[in-house]
């Protein structure tokens, strides 16, 4: 990735196409956050490749004034993997949704994470199929009534972070469409991390699953229900920053600072860089009603990327081979003269 002194603004990343998401859709905020983040990265516009699958959020590429590719349902991960492997100097972003990445594209999702291809995977999770008008998705909560589950779903949903960690993922972050500042910050952290950076954005579909995340995002109780993690910082939340998370035995527990002799020093300090995902997995799973929902970079463990390893292997072989061109290959091994 080439870093240059560039004076870019979010506006430079907007294409001339009219944005066609529904008014009030959470996607608008994520688009703005990504464009802001890109402007701040100091990477030239032509170095970005934005790849999507199918679904509402997958229209994203058309609104980007970069190289961009709106592909087919579920396959954004495979296409993005090909783009990055073919040209590792590009800054590749994959835009996908809960249906695109976790249902039809589930296989590609786990494998790109397993390979640790250096790309940024933005997963818009609104727990519904929006573009097909309201069927349940792999993240829809059990019991939810949708167009395709008129009596409530009988399926247990995925938590994207579980899949990421289960696939030996190196980076997982969670953010929310109602907090553009945090979303922008997380996008920058994802982009600067080398490896498959998965960002789950809790996003609201105003038409088919309105207020699906409202219990977490509503202003009146968001401080009590959102825990913003930062590497090396204690896990504190609450209206008065008076609540925290501790580890008791094998479990997390919510405590009140100052009560029962608990001090800030007793709280868990977030370690996103820990190779061991034990606590990170508990943070992924943590949620209402007994816990806040964790936001921020939950896991960020640097390790060699697939695209780097592919390049290195080629360099190593080329350093010692006698076969330098096709004519050499054609005449290598067992040949004979007539």
């Amino acid at each position: 990735m080439e870093v240059q002194e560039l004076q870019l603004t979010a506006k430079d990343f907007k294409s001339d196409q009219e944005v066609r998401w529904c008014p009030g859709c959470g996607d608008h905020a994520v688009l703005n956050a990504v464009q802001k983040a890109m402007a701040e990265l100091g990477i030239a516009r032509e170095q970005f490749a934005v790849i999507s699958g199918i679904g509402c959020s997958s229209r994203f590429p058309y609104y980007m004034n970069t190289y961009a590719f709106h592909s087919i349902h579920g396959r954004a991960g495979a296409i993005a993997s090909g783009v990055k492997t073919a040209n590792p100097s590009l800054c590749v972003w994959q835009i996908t949704g809960d249906g695109d990445a976790l249902a039809i594209g589930g296989n590609h999702f786990i494998h790109e994470i397993r390979r640790n291809i250096d790309l940024n995977l933005i997963l818009f999770n609104n727990e519904i199929y929006g573009l097909t008008k309201g069927q349940y998705s792999p993240t829809t909560k059990e019991g939810k009534i949708t167009k395709s589950s008129p009596f409530g779903t009988v399926e247990s949903p995925f938590k994207p972070g579980q899949l990421v960690i289960g696939s030996s993922g190196k980076f997982f972050a969670r953010t929310l469409d109602t907090n553009i500042k945090h979303t922008t910050q997380i996008m920058i952290e994802a982009a600067t991390f080398r490896g498959t950076s998965v960002v789950e954005v809790l996003q609201n579909c105003v038409i088919y699953a309105d207020k699906i995340h409202a219990e977490i995002t509503d202003k009146q109780f968001k401080n009590e229900r959102q825990l913003f993690l930062e590497h090396g910082k204690p896990m504190i939340f609450g209206d008065n920053n008076d609540k925290g998370i501790i580890l008791r035995g094998m479990h997390l527990e919510v405590v009140e600072i100052g009560k029962d002799g608990v001090t800030e020093a007793d709280l868990l300090v977030h370690d996103a860089k820990s190779e061991n995902p034990f606590i990170q997995m508990m943070l992924v799973n943590m949620g209402l009603p007994n816990f806040p929902v964790a936001f921020g970079v939950i896991r960020a463990v640097e390790s060699a990327t697939y695209d780097q390893k592919v390049e290195r292997q080629i360099r190593d072989v080329q350093a010692t081979t006698k076969i330098k061109c096709m004519d050499d290959l054609l005449r290598s091994g067992s040949t004979w003269e007539v």
């Binding site: 490749a49 090909g82 492997t85 290959l329």
Partner: peptide
């Protein structure tokens, strides 16, 4: 030795889709 990049994909669909990505690139 001749710089060929080969991506053994997770399935046939990813086989062609990675190629389409590489072609775009």
């Amino acid at each position: 030795d001749l710089g060929v990049k080969v991506f053994q994909a997770e399935d046939e669909i990813a086989g062609i889709c990675t190629s389409i990505g590489a072609s775009f690139a």
